[in-house]
């Protein structure tokens, strides 16, 4: 993404501010995934492959509809199917399109050690700049949703870009374009929330009283949101986390530990220097050598005597 056409508001492993003068007037964007409208056709997966030039390895049927079984560096989005029996004994087929959630506070970006390998645009999209990716996998450690995948071929991490290239040109992501039921919609986050509220209201009137919007606060909200029939039990949807947030361990590691660690090392080295300046070197004197020599001599005499005694 060398010729950047979008404003970057956050950049991995960068302690200074990115350019701020040109303030983006465009509102943040969002993709809304309405699980209640999804029929699991996987057109979104195909559109993703086409637009992004991705071809995963052809696998084998493992007895479930999920295909491929998991996200990979070649499959940036995957439909996850769950069979749920509700209280009335009816079967509900809960299908969730999995992929990057584009967190407002991205754990991947916080964890990344390579300057500029992960960026966040003013419109909210979190993007990997593979050119700067060093392949350490820290983004995987930082992600609360288990999304990035490391390629075995080039050793770089990949995930959904929310079609940042299409969005920059004023288009919707490829998956949204392909969705035949309107389960995927794209627009400003504000509009998407309004639309989602209508959907939730509709679902509630149809008996899904726990329907709701999944826009988790723990990561500052997301730029990919779900409408869930069972907002009270997100884990039903193939373990969608109930309260995702950046792990405290990652926050400490990438927060206070960094300045404290570097300061501690510098101070230790400087303390050594000061000690030398104040106390001076601890030298062995000529007298020490003479005394030592006398001790060696005495010991040698003793040793000789012991040998003759035997």
């Amino acid at each position: 993404m060398a010729l950047e056409s979008q404003d970057i508001v956050r950049r991995s492993a960068t302690t200074t501010k990115p350019p701020q003068v040109r303030r983006a007037r465009t509102a943040p964007v969002a993709k809304l995934i309405d699980t209640s409208k999804c029929i699991g056709c996987k057109a979104c997966q195909v559109a993703c492959m086409e637009w992004n030039d991705l071809r995963d390895e052809i696998g084998t049927c493992s007895g479930v509809y999920d295909n491929p079984l998991d996200l990979t560096e070649h499959s940036w989005t995957v439909m996850r199917f769950a069979e749920h029996e509700n209280e009335r004994g009816d079967l509900e087929w809960l299908i969730r399109k999995d992929g990057c959630m584009h967190c407002a506070e991205p754990g991947c970006l916080a964890a990344c050690p390579s300057p500029g390998a992960i960026v966040q645009y003013a419109n909210g999209i979190v993007d990997f700049d593979s050119e700067h990716c060093i392949g350490c996998g820290y983004c995987i450690t930082g992600c609360p949703f288990n999304i990035p995948r490391l390629s075995g071929v080039d050793g770089k991490a990949y995930k959904c870009t929310l079609c940042s290239d299409r969005v920059a040109a004023g288009r919707e992501p490829a998956c949204v374009k392909a969705c035949p039921t309107g389960a995927l919609v794209f627009g400003t986050k504000e509009d998407m929330l309004r639309h989602a509220e209508e959907r939730v209201e509709d679902l509630k009137s149809r008996g899904f009283e726990n329907a709701g919007i999944y826009d988790p606060e723990g990561v500052g909200g997301t730029h990919v949101m779900y409408v869930l029939h069972h907002r009270d039990r997100p884990e039903l949807y193939n373990d969608l986390p109930a309260d995702p947030k950046i792990s405290t361990l990652v926050k400490v590691w990438k927060g206070v530990a960094k300045p404290l660690g570097v300061a501690g090392m510098l101070l230790a080295a400087f303390a050594g220097f000061l000690h030398y300046i104040r106390v001076g070197p601890n030298e062995t004197t000529d007298d020490d050598e003479r005394e030592a020599a006398r001790a060696v001599g005495a010991s040698a005499v003793r040793a000789r005597r012991e040998t003759t005694d035997e």
């Binding site: 601890n282 062995t284 050598e289 030592a292 001790a295």
Partner: peptide, 14 residues
């Protein structure tokens, strides 16, 4: 040097 050992590590010197 023996003096170094004598000064800093006397027991080892012995």
């Amino acid at each position: 040097t023996a003096g170094w050992a004598f000064k800093h590590h006397r027991a080892w010197f012995r």
